[in-house]
Design a protein around this nucleic acid. Sequence first.
DNA 1: TAAGTGTATTAAGTGATATAATACACTTAA
DNA 2: TTAAGTGTATTATATCACTTAATACACTTA
Lengths: 131, 131
Amino acid sequence: MEEIRVGGMYFSLDLSLPLYEQVLEQVRSSIAKGEIALGDKIPSVRELAQALKINPNTVMRAYQELEREQLTETRRGQGTYITSDIAKVDLIRYRVADKAIEEFLSKMTGLGFETPEIDKLLRIKRGEAHE
Amino acid sequence: MEEIRVGGMYFSLDLSLPLYEQVLEQVRSSIAKGEIALGDKIPSVRELAQALKINPNTVMRAYQELEREQLTETRRGQGTYITSDIAKVDLIRYRVADKAIEEFLSKMTGLGFETPEIDKLLRIKRGEAHE
DNA sequence: TAAGTGTATTAAGTGATATAATACACTTAA
DNA sequence: TTAAGTGTATTATATCACTTAATACACTTA
């Protein structure tokens, strides 16, 4: 899986998910991890599209979702910038995490696993010694 | 969200995911949780389709995947039965769980969370009243 | 003015999903 | 033997999400 570096971020696309979702997730991840600084400019729609060899409309879709989440601010004619408001970043981080946790626990419960065993499986997966 | 009882199992379909995936997941969950006994017969393709008001081909697709996973055995002319081999059920249970755990941890890591905080968030989520 | 921004529109193609209508081989029970 | 109920296969059709393509427009900056 080829990894492409654009504007301080790394992208790696495949066919497992919609392209716009992958772009969205990878930018969001870069922001959450602090790999790209608050207030920084991210690549233009056209630049990123060209680098990733996908259509500008597809990049647009990802960028629009980022702005809806208030993770970015767009200035017409200038470009798209990461928000400078760290509170907004944190809010999104926890909101997305909360959803992931909910889905995870729901899935495990659906498989008949309960708290102690879920914790045990998590520890095993991390390579930790168990109980 | 309407809940429909068919052949000892409960089904609840919506538009958030493909129908065949929802049917597949809900039968798998019933088996994993032991809500339906090993060796039991599950509803016929036509019966389930009629009860859920979906196309028989859609049910077929779910049933074929269940058989590929060896969670069910089909006897031509008779019907579809839950496997009697508890080892197979457990294998699938842990395989699916492992995938869920991997995806969950990967998502949380992508958001910049590490082990201690992930555990903390899990504890918080369980302390809340949900569902 | 020219180049680079974000944004909008229209058109087209592809693939997954779902439905519909039929048909066939098999099993069971009447 | 027959009829009804199984799983299974096939073909056709429709819809929708996703993606690409080609333009066009308004704005900002150098």
